[in-house]
Nucleic acid binder design. Structure first.
Lengths: 254, 254
DNA sequence: CTTGACCTTTCCGCAGCGTCAATTCCTACT
DNA sequence: AGTAGGAATTGACGCTGCGGAAAGGTCAAG
């Protein structure tokens, strides 16, 4: 007792194309193939199909399903838990992406320029000040604009160039796969802080050192706001920068 | 002043292949192409690249980015809000999938059969009873097993056949795109309730009618548990069934 | 015998690049 | 000038899970 392909497809709520595909990838063979090449499926095949469709509705990839169904020693619960971890990872990624889109949309609707204007800048001036002041409540850049306009073109260029070099260095370090505590990354962190420190008006302690809170706040901002993250190769790069800055702070006695 | 492709890729935290791909799909053309075919990018191209990478890091598809950057009349905020809706939809889908995987994993670890055993059944007996009792606290199937074992093979077959026909009908209705309040769907709902009602031991009121709470609970269970949803073509089908049952209940005076 | 429904295989398409492969180009060193 | 080596180029295939179209067999009914 077996049934032709369309009947099976209707019964199981899928398509004949899918059934052929499953046969192609060795996931579900028809129980019988007529002399004319027609495929037929019996009860056992239907049970297997139900299982396949269940697992696919849970999002498992086809090779995982094959392993689960074919390997007698396979532990379904363990496989599903692993899949669950993967799904949770996706969920977190989505969450972060949503907040990133949201901050960008809100900035846009406040009338801010959402995208970098100055090449190699990585340090868009007005934007930077507004963000820092609004979000972190720090009176940085009180005289920022005046300072910037007071620089010579060569000085502006040098500042921008260092920004670009830092960006490229961070991107390189982040994609090389070394930990943020790595020597190279820590050197970058030092340079980054020095670069920040070259700006007058940023918040400092009595010794003239940047406030660690300020550096931490910037790190958080790099991660949260894609308009900054883009300067470090995207979200992953920004997270690397934040971690490296954090490590640098704790290593240099906060 | 322009830069070769690898330099630009490193600066922007991407790859030369990606830049070529963007040129292929008309998203970012190099500002200059040497006589030898080499690509070079100037400051304007870099700015555009930064914007592209920012938008991609937000998850926007390439055609949307092209529309945003090329169409002067495009409203970036609106596009991003639309994208946000899409992301939220994905998030909800993920949430539901995660709970589905979780219920399956938990059932598995309680030692239950996670997958359908009886073809055309859609009504696995022991499972059904356990689920209903455990989850909905209803003393259904008090005599269920005895009743089932007492049936003749022909009766079992008829019961299973009706289950299969209902399943196929639901799948068909759900994929046809009609609303759950549609006449055909409502007729299915009626048949479904009658089918459920043919089982002794299910909870009823004084008139012998199924308790609406019981029907509602089953509808919720079809949606939440993929082991049931699979009988209705997956999550979407199960949601259709739940909605149709709900509508049927309210139309038949609760 | 023809129609029409259902079946077959085969191949392109999709999103966004990664990853060869084969080839050419530029720079630097001898 | 020759040559090695690094960097660039253009194809073209691969991946995921099928959808869909083309071109053609099969089968029951009229």
């Amino acid at each position: 007792m077996d049934y032709p392909i369309t009947t099976v497809a209707r019964l199981a709520g899928t398509t004949s194309r899918t059934l052929r595909h499953y046969a192609d990838v060795g996931l579900l063979e028809p129980s019988r193939v007529g002399a004319n090449g027609y495929r037929f499926y019996d009860a056992m095949a239907l049970v297997r199909l139900q299982r396949i469709l269940l697992l696919r509705s849970l999002g498992l990839p086809i090779p995982a399903i094959r392993a689960l169904l074919d390997d007698d020693a396979a532990a379904p619960a363990a496989a599903l838990r692993a899949h669950l971890d993967h799904l949770r990872g996706e969920q977190q990624r989505l969450d972060r992406q949503i907040t990133a889109v949201l901050t960008t949309v809100e900035a846009l609707e406040r009338g801010e320029e959402p995208m970098p204007e100055k090449m190699f800048d990585g340090f868009d001036h007005a934007r930077y000040r507004e963000e820092v002041e609004e979000r972190w409540g720090i009176d940085a850049y009180a005289h920022g604009d005046a300072w910037w306009r007071g620089r010579s073109d060569a000085e502006k260029d040098a500042f921008g160039r260092e920004a670009a070099e830092l960006g490229a260095g961070w991107i390189d370090a982040a994609t090389r796969g070394v930990p943020p505590t790595d020597g190279g990354a820590q050197e970058l962190a030092g340079r980054h802080v020095a670069w920040l420190s070259s700006v007058p008006g940023v918040p400092r302690d009595e010794d003239g050192e940047l406030l660690p809170e300020y550096v931490r706040g910037l790190g958080a901002m790099y991660v949260q706001d894609p308009r900054f993250a883009v300067n470090y190769g995207g979200l992953g790069g920004a997270e690397f920068v934040r971690a490296a800055l954090e490590a640098w702070l704790s290593r240099s006695g906060r």
